[in-house]
Amino acid sequence: MKLLHIDSSILGDNSVSRQISAAVVKVLRAEDPGLNVVYRDLGATPAPHQSGSLLAARGLDPAARTPTQASEVADADAILDEFLAADIVVIGVPMYNFGIPSQLKSWIDHIAVAGKTFRYSEAGVEGLAGDKRVILISSRGGFYGPESPAAGLEHQESYLRGFFGFIGIKDVEVVIAEGVNISADQKQAALQGAVAHASGLGRLLRAA
Rank of each mutant, 00 (worst) to 15 (best):
A114F: 13
L35I: 01
A76G: 07
G152M: 12
H110D: 08
A190G: 03
V195Y: 00
F83G: 07
A194W: 03
R119Y: 10
K170F: 01
K187E: 10
I182W: 08
V24C: 00
L35S: 00
Q19V: 06
A207I: 01
L104K: 01
G12S: 04
G165Q: 00
S51L: 12
R18S: 05
N181Y: 09
N97T: 03
P48N: 11
G92V: 06
K2W: 08
S21K: 02
I6T: 06
H49C: 09
G145W: 08
P62G: 12
I10G: 00
I91A: 09
L104N: 03
I167G: 01
E126Y: 02
H5P: 06
A47S: 14
Y39A: 07
R133I: 14
V113M: 13
K26N: 05
A129Y: 05
S8N: 02
L55Y: 05
S139L: 09
F98C: 00
Q103S: 05
I20D: 01
D109R: 08
V38M: 02
Q50R: 11
A196F: 02
A47P: 09
R140T: 11
R206W: 00
G179H: 07
L191E: 04
D61A: 15
A78K: 14
N36Y: 01
D109G: 08
L153Y: 14
G202D: 08
A57K: 04
A44Q: 13
S148N: 10
L128F: 06
G200A: 11
R161N: 11
I167Y: 00
K2H: 15
Q192G: 12
I88Q: 10
P62A: 11
I111T: 11
G52D: 12
A47H: 06
F143H: 15
F163E: 00
A189C: 03
P62E: 10
Q188R: 15
K26F: 00
I176C: 10
D131S: 13
P67R: 14
Y159L: 12
G43S: 04
A207R: 04
L3P: 06
E72C: 11
S9T: 03
G193K: 05
V16Y: 02
L205R: 12
A150S: 12
V89G: 06
E126F: 02
E72N: 12
G200T: 13
S138K: 13
A198Q: 07
L201T: 08
R133Y: 06
W107F: 15
S71G: 15
L153C: 10
Y96L: 01
G127T: 03
G141T: 09
G179N: 10
V38D: 02
G12D: 02
Y96R: 01
T66L: 11
K26T: 05
G162Y: 01
P101I: 02
K2F: 09
Q186I: 10
V16W: 02
Q156L: 11
A198E: 06
H110N: 11
V93P: 03
S15W: 01
S121Y: 08
S183K: 15
K132R: 13
K2S: 15
N36F: 00
A190T: 03
D32W: 00
F164V: 02
A123N: 13
L128Y: 08
L84N: 09
R58M: 12
L42Y: 05
L204N: 08
L153D: 10
